[in-house]
Design a protein around this nucleic acid. Structure first.
Lengths: 221, 221
DNA sequence: TGGCTTCCGTATCGAACGCTACGAAAGTCT
DNA sequence: AGACTTTCGTAGCGTTCGATACGGAAGCCA
């Protein structure tokens, strides 16, 4: 959501299914777990959760089904791990919003960051969080809820940041913080749809710019 | 998108697969084609295109697979017909936008209409056009494109309506019409996501209201 | 009434789904 | 070196996918 570098590297090799398990010898893994997770993330990003098959995944990851299952558990846990890799720790996003110089600046940063991330040349269009579980069967409701929780945390952190600016007199007292926060999140979802529809980056940027005009005027402290 | 009555009735019985075909006798259909299409629409609306199975459909429609295929062709054509039933003829939506008293009024009407439609008590949450094909495998790209075309027509009609108001001096000359039009469509996509996340109607309404603040001030003619 | 046409219900079709049993291979540890 | 642990590749598990073949049933028209 915020960073563009969440695509490349992360921790580095070694087991880490639930929390870096100690191994007592045995044949070492012959593929790069991080690289494989990267491929899985890209597939879920482009084609969604339920509509990406294990066969699609193993082919792109360059491994066989048993390797996938021993390394990642099952499809659901692989997806949730890909989500974490895509969006980073939710606490980091919350901290970034809280640390922004102003709520409006956080909004601008979030929106322009989304425009860049959704139209990357080497990544699928749109947002994984917005599209991968936008619809699905009843059996994947728990996964849909897990992704929705990510959105909620962003919106809540954002509403809190707006509340700070209202309390500080930077934003008008009558500002509807939750509504403004949800508007930003809503526009981001829309930007994802438009990126998937093939609109170019500058078109998305102009939409993000227009959305910022919904912001009330600030009174610098 | 605009009307809320697109849920109940439509033409009425009789064959209409591609264009009301004449029949030369034979056993008449024993189920209500419109009612069955309604059920299919609701299932696609709630669970999406690829993630709704033929078995789900036949069960909800109260018919057997052969009946479904005889009456609707295949899954793809059934879905496209359900989309038409959901959103109505695109020409009607375009005409409604063109006939609005002002572009801003059209935006207000579109947004409030979306809030109502996405939070109906007897319908699935969110928007079929926004969620049913938000992601999918490569084999359903044509369906995704067909739905995207619907969004494009709305946005284009809207941009044209804004252009009218700019030409008439109702909106400032520097107004970015396409961006403003796309912003409305983007917010609608976001409202759909939020409705699916379970947010209540008043929360969505406040977001729609906040979005309207992005609109430049009018100069009534 | 008889012929024709269409639909309905049963019982699948081959393919793809998520997932795993099993034995050989390749490492670490004593 | 030898026991042990873990991964690897092959092959296939049972289920569900979208879509049909087929024969009997039910209507229209002559």
């Amino acid at each position: 959501m915020t960073s563009t570098d969440s695509i490349s590297t992360a921790t580095k090799h070694g087991r880490q299914g639930e929390a870096t398990v100690r191994s007592k010898g045995g044949r070492p893994r012959s593929f790069d777990r991080d690289a494989a997770l990267d491929q899985a993330m890209h597939l879920f990003w482009r084609h969604g959760y339920e509509t990406t098959s294990i066969n699609d995944l193993t082919t792109a990851m360059g491994i066989t089904p048993p390797s996938l299952y021993t390394a990642f558990g099952d499809k659901r846990r692989l997806f949730l791990e890909a989500v974490r890799r895509y969006a980073g720790e939710p606490e980091a996003a919350e901290a970034a919003i809280a640390a922004a110089p102003s709520a409006r600046e956080a909004a601008r940063s979030l929106l322009t960051g989304a425009v860049v991330m959704f139209t990357g040349a080497n990544t699928p269009p749109g947002c994984l969080l917005a599209s991968a579980t936008a619809s699905g069967s009843a059996s994947s409701r728990d996964v849909q809820i897990a992704v929705a929780a990510y959105r909620h945390r962003i919106a809540d952190a954002f509403a809190a940041r707006i509340g700070q600016d209202v309390a500080a007199g930077v934003l008008p007292a009558e500002t509807d913080g939750p509504a403004l926060a949800r508007l930003v999140v809503a526009v981001i979802q829309g930007l994802s749809v438009m990126a998937r529809d093939g609109l170019p980056k500058d078109a998305l940027a102009s939409v993000a710019d227009a959305a910022l005009h919904a912001w009330p005027s600030e009174t610098p402290a």
